[in-house]
Design a protein around this nucleic acid. Sequence first.
DNA 1: TTGAAAGCGTTACCAC
DNA 2: GTGGTAACGCTTTCAA
Lengths: 321, 321
Amino acid sequence: MARLAGVSRATVSYVLNNTSAVRISEPTRRRVHEAAQELGYVPHAAARSLRAGHSRIVLMPAPAIPVGPLYSRFLGELQAALGRLDYTVVQYGSVGLRGDEAARAWAELRPVAVLVPGGDIGPRGVAVLQRAGARAVVTLGPERVDGAHALLTDHSAVGHSAGAHLYARGRRRIGVVVPEEPGLEVFSEPRLAGVRRALHGTDATATVLPLAYTEQAAAELAAGWRGLSLDAVFAYNDEYAMLLMRALQDEGVRVPEDVAVVGADDLMLGRLLRPRLSTVRIELPSGRDLAELVDRAVRDPGAEPEVREVLGASLVHRASS
Amino acid sequence: MARLAGVSRATVSYVLNNTSAVRISEPTRRRVHEAAQELGYVPHAAARSLRAGHSRIVLMPAPAIPVGPLYSRFLGELQAALGRLDYTVVQYGSVGLRGDEAARAWAELRPVAVLVPGGDIGPRGVAVLQRAGARAVVTLGPERVDGAHALLTDHSAVGHSAGAHLYARGRRRIGVVVPEEPGLEVFSEPRLAGVRRALHGTDATATVLPLAYTEQAAAELAAGWRGLSLDAVFAYNDEYAMLLMRALQDEGVRVPEDVAVVGADDLMLGRLLRPRLSTVRIELPSGRDLAELVDRAVRDPGAEPEVREVLGASLVHRASS
DNA sequence: TTGAAAGCGTTACCAC
DNA sequence: GTGGTAACGCTTTCAA
């Protein structure tokens, strides 16, 4: 380090951190700043957090699957909001790691808070992180995890919206697309369950339609469509809806006359389809709210874990249903 | 620390790191492992890198704008490949930070390597990082930055492919969509330049068409379309192409008879449009290659910066042109 | 107002 | 084979 600026290391620390407890003479301040500038001095985060016993890092695992514009926006907002509160958001690329192994890897960084999709961590992982000094662990997912704060995202509400809407429109034989791509079960299973719930106790039925995200798979599904005698389909999301709708139209199946189609996520592309795609709009919590929750939890680590329902689902009715 | 396992800290270190230089008795090993297990011991990355003088962190700024499936896949591959080489990939959420300020923030983590979009850093930033111990700084962008390795992504090749194709198909008055969304200039400007280059010295012309990603903006552009008397358009990418194509078709403009349309990125949605969308397929470097480049640079920091052209562009001809 | 020194968790290096 | 010790860069307490 550059204490060769003529003063002691302590003085440097005081000046650069603007410590108010001690007063440093103006000339000294200037000398320190000049020296730092000249040497390109940058404080060493590791040394600092070693000494302090904690970091200002909020850690999130980097998403393994491509994320849509919805989640991207949420992530950006969250980063901005946490940045304003003087935290550093870090997405940890945890490729092959799973479960407690991942939690241990994250714990090595001694983050002050961890924000993690629910399925990626269990109670033991939470405990590991807390013992490693994490003052807040927040999960984002369908169910709470012991010891952690929880933002509950009940994706069955999405399926429920779609199912109830289709039923109200007079549809009774409802197909539900379930993506075959791995990693999407977390969303697709609750969405399917939500449709089932909406139809429970009625004369309508839900039929599972596994579908890979390829033209060919969609064409095959469409080829056998009439045999299924369905009058509606909830297509998991807008992208699968577009895929299926195109295949159906190519097959001569009319939308919405022969089959009503509903997607989810309210993407731009749904508005560009003909007929325009009905969809379920999903609302994530605002990044700012979440940042405040994290900050509160960090300041008061003893408090009871907060559990909050955060996912809003509302149907946007357009021409396809 | 678990020296309360009855042994010295050094012994713990040996056992947990499987140091081969010294032999530890089996009973001692067991005791250490048991204690670590019981205490939920996790090594402290900060302390380790403080001692070692460097970390195994490869830092990338987290993307500020939503990224498409193409870049997501690349990122995933890269993380996996670097993970296999025992690096930790960290995406740093650098919200408001820009230029040298961002570089300093990154430098605080003392990453062993930094991988950064070219526009986000200059030669001074590179120097800051290197002085802070980064053994490799790799930029990904249109031009190289002094002192850093460079993966050159020449997006003008994308525009050139599209322009040359449209010209070869007999089109002479070619519109080029330029998104109005901020942050996309890095891509849109070279793509436009590429079209111009393809048409240079011919009788064909390129017309700039600024376009916001909204239905209304597209409708307005389409409303005045005939006045522009264009016979082709390169729409920046597949999403803008879909937006514009829909607006044109709603306006009664026929594709490809009245106007040929070409997109870019070869997304699934292009194949689902009718007519199917011609597009420019873009190839990014494989994550594994890049990981190897990083690893090589880290092992031999003295070497000349590598400069490599990495972006492939090839036209996929479908029905829209 | 400034300087000296301790200590955070690790590991490399020497004595034992 | 094992254990003590020093040092990494920083902040903070205490003394000058």
